[in-house]
Amino acid sequence: MTHRPTRADYVAWRTVTTRWRDDDAYGHLNNATYYELFDTAVNAHLYEATGLDVRALPQIGVVAETSCRYYRELGFPAPIETGLVVDKVGTSSVVYRIGLFQGAGDDAAAEGRFVHVYVDNTDPARPVAPVPDAIRAAVLPLLRHAAE
């Protein structure tokens, strides 16, 4: 069994409100909503940390990989706390992990992996472009070793 993440594994935090429509027919958060939360946690951090519209940079991050490990159910109406940490900053990519927490517990209810690969904004077919300096500066403080 893999390590179940705890709050101590993350560096940056954001609280999001759950909505009635986020739950599926079984009364728990729909799987697609987890991925929306991961995307929001990453991009909200980038917007806030850089002060820029990241969509207008010469190099933009496109999602190359996502995954999720589910540990327990989440659902409406309680808010969800998202914890963010960076595992790797490469030449053209950033690897994030996002923990989802609901309630007072210390263990994550789910953890996502989210990989941005930076491409040329004018020619997205060019998959190798350097991570923009503003993005690099925003994510380096989130590196796992920087938090320890």
Rank of each mutant, 00 (worst) to 15 (best):
G112N: 09
V95F: 02
G112H: 02
V94L: 07
P79V: 12
F101L: 03
A110V: 11
G75L: 03
R97S: 11
G75Q: 05
T66S: 13
E81N: 11
S92V: 05
A129P: 02
Q102W: 13
S92K: 13
D120C: 10
A129E: 04
Y96E: 04
P132W: 08
G112F: 05
P124Q: 04
V128G: 01
E73T: 13
R72E: 14
D106C: 02
G61K: 01
A108L: 01
Y118I: 01
V131R: 09
A109F: 00
A78K: 14
D87L: 14
A110Q: 08
D87C: 05
P130S: 05
P132L: 08
E111V: 15
P127E: 13
E81A: 15
S93C: 10
G112K: 06
A64G: 15
D106G: 00
G61L: 08
F101M: 04
T91R: 15
Y96F: 15
E73Y: 08
V128E: 12
D107P: 00
G83L: 02
V94Q: 09
T82V: 14
F101G: 10
R113V: 14
L84W: 07
D87N: 14
V131S: 07
P77R: 03
H116F: 06
V117Y: 11
L100W: 07
R126H: 11
Q102P: 13
A108D: 02
A109W: 00
A125N: 10
T82W: 00
V131W: 06
I98N: 03
P124V: 13
T66R: 02
G103D: 01
D87A: 04
G61V: 08
P79N: 12
A110Y: 06
E65Q: 15
E73R: 12
I135L: 08
A104G: 15
P77Q: 06
A108M: 00
V128P: 01
R72S: 15
P79E: 10
L84T: 12
S92D: 10
F101E: 02
R113W: 03
G105F: 00
Y70N: 11
G112I: 07
G83A: 03
S93D: 04
L84A: 04
V115A: 08
V115D: 06
V62P: 00
P127N: 13
A125S: 15
D107S: 12
E65D: 15
P124N: 02
